[in-house]
Amino acid sequence: MSEAQHLLTVLTAPGPQHFTPRFNERIPSETVQKGINDLKKRFGTPQNVWKSAEEGIWNVQAEKGQYQVLAQFGQGTQLSAFRVPTAGTTSTKARLTFLLLFLAPLLFSRGAIDVWFEPSRLGWLLNALPSLALGGTLLAVSAWSQSSIWFVPLFWLGMASLLMSVVRLPALPLGTFNLWDALFSAVLLAFLLPLMLKGIQGRQVPTALVPLGPVLSGGRFMVGQGGSTPTINYHVAHEHMRYAVDFIGLNASGRHAAGLLPTDPAKYAIYGADVLAPLSGEIVALRNDLPDLPIPQADSLRPAGNHVVLQATLPDGRAAQILLAHLKTGSVRVRVGQYVNQGDVLAQVGNSGNTSEPHLHLGVNVNAEPGDPFSGEGVPFSVEGRFPVRGMVFERQR
């Protein structure tokens, strides 16, 4: 069976026998099947496949249209790497999601005010407890870049206001128990408290951090995804990206961009910021020719986009690969085999690859295959002496 015939079979009815043992260890068969099912819903049954000019990328002709997949073969005709295009998010859906992020702060603000006007102790209890849980959850899990980091002090004032309102209780009557209000408060607490606890847990500093130097310059930057639990860092769910971090930028108003999810990457605060070598080492892989995509388009076949992979020796003697991804097209200024020193400018932040908006992806892997940024085991690290968690701010001017 030729590679093309094998790939067509995979796109029709995939099974573990079509992939290498290493691939099957890393990717559950259910994940592959789900991706194939989604493709069939969008494009229908695949009819023909052929290689594109780009290495590892195959064209697929299906009943309802044409698409591309990434397929790399190991021994024989078994696939060692396989990626399919995802549907992505529409601009309208993305904007609605961001607008919903403003509702929670408004609800909290209302609760922080209403407790001062509650006519009974039971009313105060059913208002204050969910409001405290909501405020604590937002402080524990939010990045604040969609609204503004300048709202954070106001939230702490709101939490203080909620706690201070306890002084009203001795003068209030007990009040009448309302079953529906009690059920509503109980449901909110059951939803919010686990989120808050997981957010707090994700901020605990792991042991044996790899010490990295500065990684960005040219502005103020915030950790969008970072920490040790999936609640505040979705990378944790993937062994090879565990503890990886996504940095976003902050403008003068404390937001990540000018406007509500603009499509132009240049309107995001981090776009064009200098990317620095966090350790001294050798450049072992890079890409520099992919376009910066308008938001919210993403390239799921080339997840790292333009990127640099730096190989360095850690203080404990282990070899590590450091991935810096989603770089600006044409901005990479190093070459494979070049030795760089900590702090050297490597490239600029862009919006290439599988990204929802311009940001810098930073990950440290050990036991990785040479030049492969999505292999091995992700390990925890510090940046400028701090374990990067969601909402943490770094600042460095050029």
Rank of each mutant, 00 (worst) to 15 (best):
L129S: 04
I113A: 03
G135N: 08
F177D: 03
A128Q: 06
Q146G: 04
D181M: 07
L174E: 08
V166L: 12
A186H: 07
D181T: 01
G158I: 12
L163K: 01
A112I: 10
F184A: 15
I149C: 07
P173W: 01
I149G: 09
L129F: 11
G123F: 10
F155K: 08
L129I: 01
S131I: 05
A186K: 10
L122F: 06
G111M: 15
L154F: 09
W124I: 03
G111T: 10
G199F: 00
F155D: 11
N178F: 13
I149E: 08
M164A: 12
S120G: 14
P194R: 05
I200S: 03
F177C: 15
L139R: 10
L163G: 07
L139G: 14
L139A: 15
A133T: 01
V115G: 00
W124Y: 09
A186P: 08
L192V: 09
P170G: 12
F191R: 13
L188P: 07
L174A: 00
P153Y: 04
W180Q: 12
L179N: 06
N178G: 08
W156Q: 12
Q146N: 07
S131D: 08
L122Q: 05
A182M: 04
L125Y: 11
L172F: 03
L188S: 14
S148Q: 07
L183Y: 01
V166S: 00
K198H: 10
S145L: 06
G136D: 04
A190E: 03
M196S: 01
S142V: 01
L154T: 12
S148C: 08
M196H: 04
W156H: 14
M196I: 00
L193I: 15
V166I: 15
T176E: 13
S147C: 08
L157C: 15
L172Q: 00
A133W: 13
S147M: 11
L162D: 05
L122R: 11
L154P: 04
L179W: 14
F177N: 00
P119N: 10
W144C: 00
L179V: 10
L197K: 02
A143C: 11
N127C: 00
W150N: 09
L195D: 08
F155P: 07
M159E: 15
D181P: 01
W150V: 02
L197S: 07
L125G: 08
I200C: 03
P130C: 09
L154E: 06
G111A: 15
V141P: 09
I200N: 03
L169Q: 03
T137C: 02
L139C: 09
T176A: 13
M159F: 12
G199M: 00
W144V: 01
V167F: 07
V141T: 12
A133C: 07
G135T: 00
I113K: 01
L132G: 05
L132P: 03
F177A: 12
T176P: 05
I149H: 07
V115M: 11
V167A: 15
S147P: 13
I113M: 00
G175T: 11
W156Y: 14
G175W: 04
L179K: 08
L157H: 09
N178H: 11
S147K: 02
L197D: 10
M196E: 05
F191V: 14
L172P: 01
L138Q: 03
S185H: 06
E118Y: 06
P170Q: 04
L188N: 04
R121D: 04
G123A: 02
T137Q: 05
P170F: 05
K198I: 15
S145K: 14
V187A: 10
W144F: 10
F151M: 11
F151R: 07
R121T: 08
G135S: 01
